[in-house]
Design a protein around this nucleic acid. Structure first.
Length: 314
DNA sequence: GTTGAGCGTT
Protein backbone atom coordinates (compact mmCIF):
# COMPACT_ATOMS: atom_id res chain seq x y z
CA UNK A 1 0.00 0.00 0.00
CA UNK A 2 0.95 3.64 0.08
CA UNK A 3 3.75 4.47 2.45
CA UNK A 4 2.61 6.95 5.05
CA UNK A 5 4.28 8.62 7.98
CA UNK A 6 2.85 9.67 11.30
CA UNK A 7 2.82 13.29 10.15
CA UNK A 8 -0.06 12.98 7.76
CA UNK A 9 -2.56 15.00 9.77
CA UNK A 10 -2.70 17.83 12.23
CA UNK A 11 -5.31 17.99 14.96
CA UNK A 12 -6.97 21.39 14.83
CA UNK A 13 -9.79 22.75 16.93
CA UNK A 14 -11.79 25.95 17.03
CA UNK A 15 -11.05 26.38 20.73
CA UNK A 16 -10.12 24.45 23.84
CA UNK A 17 -13.60 22.97 24.29
CA UNK A 18 -14.43 21.82 20.78
CA UNK A 19 -13.50 18.56 19.13
CA UNK A 20 -10.45 18.56 16.89
CA UNK A 21 -10.51 17.99 13.16
CA UNK A 22 -7.65 16.26 11.41
CA UNK A 23 -6.32 18.32 8.53
CA UNK A 24 -3.93 16.78 5.99
CA UNK A 25 -0.27 17.74 5.88
CA UNK A 26 1.67 18.26 2.65
CA UNK A 27 4.32 15.77 1.59
CA UNK A 28 7.05 18.14 2.72
CA UNK A 29 5.63 18.33 6.21
CA UNK A 30 4.05 21.75 5.91
CA UNK A 31 0.40 22.66 6.24
CA UNK A 32 -1.47 24.89 3.84
CA UNK A 33 -3.64 27.63 5.29
CA UNK A 34 -6.10 26.86 2.52
CA UNK A 35 -6.51 23.35 3.90
CA UNK A 36 -7.14 24.73 7.36
CA UNK A 37 -9.63 27.19 5.90
CA UNK A 38 -11.39 24.33 4.16
CA UNK A 39 -12.35 22.97 7.58
CA UNK A 40 -12.46 26.29 9.41
CA UNK A 41 -13.67 28.91 6.93
CA UNK A 42 -11.94 32.19 7.59
CA UNK A 43 -8.90 30.70 9.30
CA UNK A 44 -5.72 32.67 8.72
CA UNK A 45 -3.28 30.91 11.01
CA UNK A 46 -2.73 28.56 13.92
CA UNK A 47 -1.54 28.76 17.48
CA UNK A 48 -0.75 26.16 20.09
CA UNK A 49 0.13 25.83 23.72
CA UNK A 50 3.63 24.44 24.21
CA UNK A 51 4.20 22.25 27.28
CA UNK A 52 6.87 24.61 28.56
CA UNK A 53 5.05 27.87 27.92
CA UNK A 54 2.30 29.72 29.73
CA UNK A 55 1.03 31.49 26.66
CA UNK A 56 -0.05 30.46 23.21
CA UNK A 57 2.59 30.30 20.56
CA UNK A 58 1.99 31.18 16.93
CA UNK A 59 2.78 28.79 14.12
CA UNK A 60 5.20 30.15 11.55
CA UNK A 61 3.36 31.26 8.42
CA UNK A 62 5.14 32.07 5.17
CA UNK A 63 3.31 32.65 1.90
CA UNK A 64 0.25 30.74 2.94
CA UNK A 65 2.29 27.80 4.23
CA UNK A 66 2.31 26.83 7.90
CA UNK A 67 5.55 25.35 9.13
CA UNK A 68 5.58 22.74 11.92
CA UNK A 69 6.96 23.70 15.31
CA UNK A 70 10.07 21.98 16.59
CA UNK A 71 8.10 19.17 18.16
CA UNK A 72 6.22 18.53 14.95
CA UNK A 73 2.49 18.54 14.30
CA UNK A 74 1.77 15.57 16.54
CA UNK A 75 2.83 17.19 19.77
CA UNK A 76 -0.47 18.85 20.58
CA UNK A 77 -3.78 20.18 19.32
CA UNK A 78 -3.60 23.42 17.38
CA UNK A 79 -6.12 26.22 17.53
CA UNK A 80 -7.46 28.36 14.73
CA UNK A 81 -6.67 32.04 14.37
CA UNK A 82 -9.08 34.34 12.61
CA UNK A 83 -8.26 37.74 11.16
CA UNK A 84 -9.38 41.09 12.39
CA UNK A 85 -12.50 42.17 10.62
CA UNK A 86 -13.83 38.64 10.59
CA UNK A 87 -17.42 39.69 11.37
CA UNK A 88 -17.51 41.74 8.18
CA UNK A 89 -16.03 38.89 6.20
CA UNK A 90 -18.56 36.52 7.68
CA UNK A 91 -21.23 38.83 6.33
CA UNK A 92 -19.83 38.31 2.87
CA UNK A 93 -19.76 34.56 3.31
CA UNK A 94 -23.36 34.47 4.35
CA UNK A 95 -24.45 36.07 1.13
CA UNK A 96 -26.30 33.90 -1.30
CA UNK A 97 -24.22 32.43 -4.07
CA UNK A 98 -24.52 34.38 -7.27
CA UNK A 99 -22.53 35.41 -10.25
CA UNK A 100 -19.45 37.42 -9.41
CA UNK A 101 -19.95 41.05 -10.17
CA UNK A 102 -17.97 44.22 -10.10
CA UNK A 103 -19.51 45.14 -6.80
CA UNK A 104 -17.97 42.02 -5.23
CA UNK A 105 -14.51 43.11 -6.26
CA UNK A 106 -15.12 46.59 -4.97
CA UNK A 107 -16.54 45.30 -1.71
CA UNK A 108 -13.58 43.00 -1.19
CA UNK A 109 -11.14 45.78 -1.96
CA UNK A 110 -12.80 48.13 0.45
CA UNK A 111 -12.86 45.42 3.07
CA UNK A 112 -9.14 44.89 2.77
CA UNK A 113 -8.14 48.51 2.51
CA UNK A 114 -10.35 49.97 5.19
CA UNK A 115 -9.73 47.39 7.87
CA UNK A 116 -8.18 49.24 10.79
CA UNK A 117 -4.51 48.72 10.46
CA UNK A 118 -1.46 50.40 11.90
CA UNK A 119 0.65 51.97 9.21
CA UNK A 120 3.57 54.30 8.87
CA UNK A 121 2.37 57.89 8.48
CA UNK A 122 4.08 60.40 6.27
CA UNK A 123 4.71 63.83 7.82
CA UNK A 124 4.99 66.59 5.23
CA UNK A 125 6.19 70.12 5.69
CA UNK A 126 8.63 69.59 8.52
CA UNK A 127 11.06 72.38 9.29
CA UNK A 128 14.44 71.50 7.83
CA UNK A 129 15.82 71.77 11.32
CA UNK A 130 13.57 69.11 12.88
CA UNK A 131 15.36 65.90 13.73
CA UNK A 132 14.01 62.44 14.45
CA UNK A 133 14.13 62.86 18.20
CA UNK A 134 12.07 66.02 18.03
CA UNK A 135 9.64 64.33 15.69
CA UNK A 136 9.24 61.44 18.12
CA UNK A 137 8.82 63.81 21.04
CA UNK A 138 6.09 65.75 19.27
CA UNK A 139 4.01 62.73 18.26
CA UNK A 140 4.58 61.10 21.62
CA UNK A 141 1.72 63.30 22.81
CA UNK A 142 -0.65 61.11 20.76
CA UNK A 143 0.66 57.74 21.88
CA UNK A 144 3.66 55.49 21.84
CA UNK A 145 5.82 56.21 18.80
CA UNK A 146 7.60 53.11 17.52
CA UNK A 147 9.22 54.70 14.48
CA UNK A 148 10.46 58.19 13.75
CA UNK A 149 12.29 59.05 10.57
CA UNK A 150 13.39 62.29 8.95
CA UNK A 151 14.43 61.82 5.35
CA UNK A 152 17.76 63.37 4.50
CA UNK A 153 19.43 64.21 1.23
CA UNK A 154 22.03 61.46 0.77
CA UNK A 155 24.60 63.98 -0.50
CA UNK A 156 24.22 66.93 1.83
CA UNK A 157 22.80 65.04 4.77
CA UNK A 158 20.28 67.81 5.23
CA UNK A 159 16.62 67.11 5.97
CA UNK A 160 14.30 67.00 2.98
CA UNK A 161 11.50 68.34 5.11
CA UNK A 162 9.44 65.21 5.48
CA UNK A 163 9.52 62.06 7.50
CA UNK A 164 7.60 59.10 8.81
CA UNK A 165 6.16 58.08 12.14
CA UNK A 166 4.50 54.93 13.32
CA UNK A 167 2.40 54.43 16.44
CA UNK A 168 2.10 51.34 18.55
CA UNK A 169 -1.69 51.42 18.46
CA UNK A 170 -4.35 52.30 15.97
CA UNK A 171 -6.14 54.77 18.22
CA UNK A 172 -3.09 57.01 18.35
CA UNK A 173 -2.79 56.81 14.60
CA UNK A 174 -6.39 57.94 14.16
CA UNK A 175 -5.83 60.90 16.46
CA UNK A 176 -2.72 61.98 14.62
CA UNK A 177 -4.45 61.66 11.25
CA UNK A 178 -7.43 63.70 12.34
CA UNK A 179 -5.66 67.03 12.66
CA UNK A 180 -2.95 69.27 11.34
CA UNK A 181 0.19 69.67 13.37
CA UNK A 182 2.32 72.65 14.34
CA UNK A 183 5.86 71.32 14.54
CA UNK A 184 8.78 73.65 15.04
CA UNK A 185 6.71 76.63 13.97
CA UNK A 186 5.38 75.13 10.75
CA UNK A 187 2.06 73.54 9.90
CA UNK A 188 2.65 69.94 8.88
CA UNK A 189 0.36 67.42 7.24
CA UNK A 190 0.14 63.83 8.43
CA UNK A 191 -1.21 61.35 5.92
CA UNK A 192 -1.33 57.68 5.10
CA UNK A 193 1.53 57.19 2.62
CA UNK A 194 0.01 57.08 -0.83
CA UNK A 195 3.00 55.37 -2.37
CA UNK A 196 2.54 52.29 -0.31
CA UNK A 197 -1.41 51.94 -0.67
CA UNK A 198 -1.15 48.88 -2.93
CA UNK A 199 1.96 47.54 -1.18
CA UNK A 200 0.24 47.62 2.18
CA UNK A 201 -2.11 44.93 0.95
CA UNK A 202 0.71 42.61 0.07
CA UNK A 203 2.54 40.20 2.28
CA UNK A 204 -0.67 39.43 4.07
CA UNK A 205 -2.89 36.44 4.28
CA UNK A 206 -6.43 37.59 3.85
CA UNK A 207 -9.72 35.80 3.92
CA UNK A 208 -12.49 36.48 1.47
CA UNK A 209 -15.63 34.40 1.33
CA UNK A 210 -14.12 31.65 3.40
CA UNK A 211 -10.91 31.18 1.46
CA UNK A 212 -7.44 32.13 2.54
CA UNK A 213 -5.37 33.98 0.01
CA UNK A 214 -1.87 35.29 0.25
CA UNK A 215 -1.39 38.60 -1.50
CA UNK A 216 2.14 38.82 -2.80
CA UNK A 217 4.22 40.59 -5.36
CA UNK A 218 6.05 38.29 -7.71
CA UNK A 219 9.82 38.46 -7.44
CA UNK A 220 11.06 40.72 -10.23
CA UNK A 221 13.01 38.67 -12.75
CA UNK A 222 14.84 41.57 -14.35
CA UNK A 223 15.29 45.30 -14.25
CA UNK A 224 12.34 45.93 -16.52
CA UNK A 225 10.04 44.07 -14.20
CA UNK A 226 11.53 45.92 -11.27
CA UNK A 227 10.60 49.19 -12.92
CA UNK A 228 7.10 47.84 -13.29
CA UNK A 229 6.91 46.70 -9.70
CA UNK A 230 4.05 48.99 -8.82
CA UNK A 231 1.98 47.72 -11.71
CA UNK A 232 2.92 44.17 -10.80
CA UNK A 233 1.79 44.78 -7.27
CA UNK A 234 -1.60 45.93 -8.43
CA UNK A 235 -1.97 43.02 -10.81
CA UNK A 236 -0.97 40.47 -8.21
CA UNK A 237 -3.38 41.97 -5.77
CA UNK A 238 -6.06 41.70 -8.41
CA UNK A 239 -5.08 38.09 -8.98
CA UNK A 240 -5.26 37.34 -5.29
CA UNK A 241 -8.67 38.90 -4.95
CA UNK A 242 -9.85 37.09 -8.03
CA UNK A 243 -8.75 33.77 -6.68
CA UNK A 244 -10.49 34.47 -3.42
CA UNK A 245 -13.71 35.60 -4.98
CA UNK A 246 -13.66 32.81 -7.53
CA UNK A 247 -13.23 30.18 -4.87
CA UNK A 248 -15.86 31.84 -2.80
CA UNK A 249 -18.36 31.39 -5.56
CA UNK A 250 -17.60 27.70 -5.97
CA UNK A 251 -16.45 25.56 -3.07
CA UNK A 252 -14.63 26.56 0.06
CA UNK A 253 -12.58 23.36 -0.06
CA UNK A 254 -10.96 24.20 -3.37
CA UNK A 255 -7.23 24.80 -2.90
CA UNK A 256 -6.27 28.41 -3.24
CA UNK A 257 -4.85 29.22 -6.62
CA UNK A 258 -4.18 32.44 -8.43
CA UNK A 259 -5.34 31.11 -11.77
CA UNK A 260 -8.59 30.39 -13.45
CA UNK A 261 -10.40 33.62 -12.92
CA UNK A 262 -11.03 36.39 -15.34
CA UNK A 263 -11.84 39.93 -14.41
CA UNK A 264 -13.99 42.08 -16.54
CA UNK A 265 -12.35 45.32 -17.67
CA UNK A 266 -14.67 47.19 -15.33
CA UNK A 267 -13.44 45.17 -12.37
CA UNK A 268 -9.82 45.81 -13.25
CA UNK A 269 -10.49 49.50 -13.68
CA UNK A 270 -12.27 49.73 -10.35
CA UNK A 271 -9.58 47.84 -8.50
CA UNK A 272 -6.73 49.72 -10.12
CA UNK A 273 -8.27 53.06 -9.38
CA UNK A 274 -9.02 52.03 -5.84
CA UNK A 275 -5.50 50.82 -5.19
CA UNK A 276 -3.93 53.90 -6.70
CA UNK A 277 -6.08 56.58 -5.18
CA UNK A 278 -7.21 55.08 -1.94
CA UNK A 279 -10.42 56.98 -2.46
CA UNK A 280 -13.49 54.81 -2.47
CA UNK A 281 -16.11 57.46 -2.98
CA UNK A 282 -16.59 57.06 -6.70
CA UNK A 283 -15.38 53.56 -7.25
CA UNK A 284 -17.55 50.86 -8.66
CA UNK A 285 -21.01 52.30 -8.38
CA UNK A 286 -21.04 54.30 -11.60
CA UNK A 287 -21.88 51.92 -14.40
CA UNK A 288 -22.45 48.72 -12.51
CA UNK A 289 -25.75 47.29 -11.47
CA UNK A 290 -26.64 48.26 -7.97
CA UNK A 291 -27.01 45.25 -5.77
CA UNK A 292 -29.70 44.71 -3.23
CA UNK A 293 -29.56 44.19 0.51
CA UNK A 294 -26.04 42.77 0.44
CA UNK A 295 -24.64 46.10 -0.68
CA UNK A 296 -22.56 47.86 1.90
CA UNK A 297 -24.03 50.62 4.06
CA UNK A 298 -22.67 54.04 3.19
CA UNK A 299 -20.87 54.51 6.46
CA UNK A 300 -19.16 51.16 6.66
CA UNK A 301 -16.37 52.11 4.29
CA UNK A 302 -14.56 55.13 3.06
CA UNK A 303 -12.46 57.30 5.25
CA UNK A 304 -13.27 56.25 8.78
CA UNK A 305 -14.42 58.95 11.15
CA UNK A 306 -12.68 59.21 14.46
CA UNK A 307 -14.98 56.86 16.28
CA UNK A 308 -15.09 54.22 13.59
CA UNK A 309 -14.45 50.69 14.79
CA UNK A 310 -15.18 48.51 11.82
CA UNK A 311 -17.07 45.97 13.88
CA UNK A 312 -20.06 47.95 14.96
CA UNK A 313 -22.46 46.61 12.35
CA UNK A 314 -25.31 44.61 13.69
C1' DG B 1 18.67 79.93 4.34
C1' DT B 2 20.88 76.42 -0.77
C1' DT B 3 14.54 75.44 0.50
C1' DG B 4 8.74 74.43 0.92
C1' DA B 5 5.40 70.46 -2.94
C1' DG B 6 5.72 66.04 -2.06
C1' DC B 7 6.00 60.17 -0.46
C1' DG B 8 10.42 56.27 2.29
C1' DT B 9 18.77 53.90 0.68
C1' DT B 10 17.82 50.26 5.01
Amino acid sequence: GTKRSMGDFVKIAENERDDAVEVPVEKNGTLLVSNVAAQFPGACGLRYRPLDAQSYRGVRLVDGVLHPPGDGWKSCVFFVNYPRGWPLIADLRSQEKRKLEESDVVTATKLLCTEPRISDLVVLGLPFSTNEEELKDYFGAFGTVVLSQVKNDPVTGKSKGFGFVRFADYESQLKALSMRHMIGGRWCDVKLPQSKVAQSLCGQDVIIKGSSVHLATAEPKNAAMRRQSRLATTQNTLAGLGAALGIGMNAAATPTSAGGFNFTPAMVAAMTQALQTGNWGNVGMGGGQRQGPEASPPNAYGRPPGNWRGRSRT
